[in-house]
Design a protein around this nucleic acid. Sequence first.
RNA 1: UCCCCGGUAGCUCAAUGGUAGAGCACCCGGCUGUUAACCGGGUUGUUGUAGGUUCGAGCCCUACCCGGGGAGCCA
Length: 438
Amino acid sequence: MTTNSTSAPVTTIERLGNHVGQTVTLQGWVYDKSSKGKLHFIKLRDGTGICQCVAFKGDVSEELFEKLGHLGQESSLVLTGTIKAEPRAPGGYEMSVKEGRVVQQVEGYPITPKEHGPDFLLSNRHLWLRSKKQWALMRIRDAVITAIRRFYDERGFVCIDSPIFTPAACEGTSTLFEVQYFEDKAYLTQSGQLYAEASAMAFGKVYTFGPTFRAEKSKTRRHLTEFWMLEPEVAFADLDDIMQLAEDMLCYVVKQVLERRKPELLALERDLTKLECIQAPFPRLSYDEAAKILAQHPESTFKYGDDFGAPDETILSKMFDRPVMVHRYPKEVKAFYMKRDPADPSKALCVDVLGPEGVGEIIGGSQREEDLDALQGRIREHGLPEEAFAWYLDLRRYGSVPHAGFGLGLERTVGWIAGTEHVREASPYPRMMYRIYP
RNA sequence: UCCCCGGUAGCUCAAUGGUAGAGCACCCGGCUGUUAACCGGGUUGUUGUAGGUUCGAGCCCUACCCGGGGAGCCA
């Protein structure tokens, strides 16, 4: 067993640029290895990046050289050596190994550098996360989350999270997951919005950001049964205000990701020009304007008055190089809490933001009905249990004000920015209709 | 819930109704600059499950199981 006799400082691969010419220690896992006679090339992965470590026979002990030659993928090890700039090495830096210690030698790691199918990879999600592209994706997801929180913090919003256990349906439409709550039934939340409205009346500008659940049997690349949703809610705001907010936020988030995660985007072979053009102003279409476009489109089966289907959204989003905001849908296809447009009471004051490149809806929002009588009537029309909404109606009894907000689907947004085909890859441990392992 | 596609070695896939195959992975040997290395040798099977048709089924038929894509619904 080789031990570190030197006291070389431990560092990480992302900081190697500060250590050129120095002897340092890296701790990580074998990402890939190839040997050529009297030298081993070990691509070491430490969570912050990948560094090629070269061990020449003669530079290290016989025992270590032999051990390094038998390392399987994902063997864990600690290596000490000198760092040099090396154009032949991926990443630009390379370690000349002097000493090392194998923490665990591994055989038979399931995910090889070759091709694998989605079923196999999803069953091995706990290991798949170590792969380069999944690693890049999760780092982009992290940057999106951080950017969102920064954005709202800078604008004076307060994060007030909504509960995950709820006593009843929020909107009365989606199928919910039912859980046993002591002696009673409860449901996993499908949206934190109603609570965000209450929070907004207490704090002015708020957002809630957490997991939401839909028990719908959706099997498409846009659907998860568990996904994270960001929901800002603003007192004294109208539809135009939150459309502006959504536009500002998306521009900010994309800019931050471009600044902080460019290597990760490139690792995913993302076309950066598609992100660089995400600039205000975004195109805005009324439902009526969008309906006219679809009526003239040969591939659309859209009928006026219907909600847009997924193919219709794709047609609309492909017309623009940035997100398109479609507003003022017919009230019949939208939720009970949305305020009517005073200029046309058949329409709701709402907006859907459709991501570009055919990714579909990433944001849905609205101005909320603040009038007590109107809202009560709406709850009855929809056949919702009034008792369950008593607290929600209180918000219209005690200092009701115009207010508005929206919900953003995190995984769809990450998938769009990262350019992935499926939302499931934008979630670290995706939950889908037929998949709850690992 | 509905429509379409698929299930063969650890992985990715091939195999007119007629002996179950390849590449990769893995193991052994060789090589001082590999980037999915290369060269030589070797190991790898309840063809998703259960029936049926047939002299003979991985292939045809029925049912079921598992997964993928899409519709609806939504973010």
